[in-house]
Simulated scan of single mutants.
Amino acid sequence: MSHYRRLRDLREDRDLTQRQLADLLQMKQPQYQRYESGERDISSELLIQLADYYGVSTDYILGRTNNPKINR
């Protein structure tokens, strides 16, 4: 599975703890931690939810581009 380093970077840029973000996503902190560490693969639904929350593209979160802007 992938290591979603950008998830951590985006979260830290907003000065959020894993617990705070997990609460926003309505999940427990250990579950969210497994996404950041790559222990659990991220679902499409959660990926879109996070991209919308941070205002970045899903490709940016996945590391497919270094451009966080969303192409419309």
Rank of each mutant, 00 (worst) to 15 (best):
L16Q: 11
N67F: 06
S57I: 07
L21N: 05
T17E: 03
D41M: 09
E45A: 14
L21P: 02
L21A: 07
S44K: 15
L16N: 06
D13Y: 07
Q29C: 12
L7R: 06
A51L: 12
R14I: 00
S57A: 08
R64E: 10
Q20A: 15
I48D: 12
R8N: 05
P30N: 09
Q33D: 04
K28H: 15
D9K: 09
Q26C: 09
T65Y: 13
S43P: 01
R40Y: 05
R64A: 01
D23T: 10
L47K: 08
Q31R: 15
R19C: 03
R6D: 00
R11D: 03
E36G: 08
T17M: 06
Y35L: 11
I48Y: 14
S44T: 15
T17G: 03
L16T: 03
I48L: 13
S43D: 11
S2E: 04
G55R: 07
L16S: 01
D13T: 08
N67S: 15
Q49C: 14
S37Y: 07
L7W: 04
L21T: 06
L50E: 10
R6W: 12
P68L: 01
T65E: 09
T58I: 14
D9C: 03
P68D: 12
D13W: 08
E36P: 05
P68I: 11
Q20I: 09
N71G: 11
P68F: 03
Q26A: 15
D15G: 06
I42T: 11
R19Y: 12
R8P: 00
K69V: 10
E12P: 00
P68A: 09
D59K: 03
Q31F: 15
Q18P: 00
Y60H: 12
S43M: 07
Q49G: 00
G38Y: 10
S44C: 04
E45V: 11
L25D: 02
I70C: 03
A22F: 11
I61E: 04
E36R: 08
P30T: 11
T58W: 05
Y53E: 01
A51R: 01
R11L: 10
R72G: 08
K28A: 13
L46W: 10
E39F: 13
I42R: 12
Q20V: 07
D9A: 15
G55S: 10
L21S: 02
L10C: 04
G38Q: 05
R6C: 07
R64S: 02
R5A: 05
H3W: 08
Q31L: 13
P30M: 14
Y60D: 00
R5C: 03
Q49E: 11
N71C: 06
M1E: 06
L10M: 13
N71I: 07
P30Q: 10
P68K: 12
D41T: 14
N71P: 09
G38A: 00
G55F: 06
M1G: 01
I61S: 01
R64W: 06
S37W: 02
R64P: 07
Y32Q: 02
R34V: 02
Q29M: 12
I48C: 12
I61G: 02
I48K: 14
